[in-house]
Amino acid sequence: MKIEPLPQVTASKVIGLLEFLNDQEGKEDIYKLAELVRYEVGELLSVIKMGEMLGFAETPNGDVVLLDLGKKFLKCKMGKRKLLIRERLSKLNLFQSLINFLKTSENGHLNREAILDELSRYLPHEDVECLFKTVVSWGRFAELLGYNPDTEVLYLDEEAFPQEK
């Protein structure tokens, strides 16, 4: 099973991309897009990549195309949007492995250090500190994972995993 790292982008940027594509009738040339939103190309590619991983967009022949799921997403309200993202995220190998790893622990709680070790096992060449931040941020947004910065503990969100004790 190949585990792909998460691009270092925030949910707001991905949603912004979808909104932008929607305004442009669902399709735009990548280089033109970078100019229009005044993004550095590398960063824009990360945002697009995340959009692809979530199944909201596609990049045929140097264009970005908004997929039907993306259109559906934009029509939803906040709560439904989060559900859609949770559904998509939990299909990613990275999240699946992490969730399984958390499930092996006593009550779905593991501290930061253990998670960092696990992440560097999955992806030995990644900056795991950064990856951890991105995972926490998306995990929280999708209410898959919770993280308490005071105790430095990552846990399975009760919203997605109700009382599996």
């Binding site: 906040m78 989060k82 926490v136 941020s137 947004f141 919770g146 993280y147 308490n148 005071d150 969100d157």
Partner: peptide, 19 residues
């Protein structure tokens, strides 16, 4: 309502500008 659930225990320093 603003789509922040899941972030309740986060500190501002952990959040992106949008959040």
């Amino acid at each position: 309502k603003v789509g922040l659930d899941g972030f309740e225990e986060a500190y501002p320093r952990e959040l992106s500008g949008g959040m």
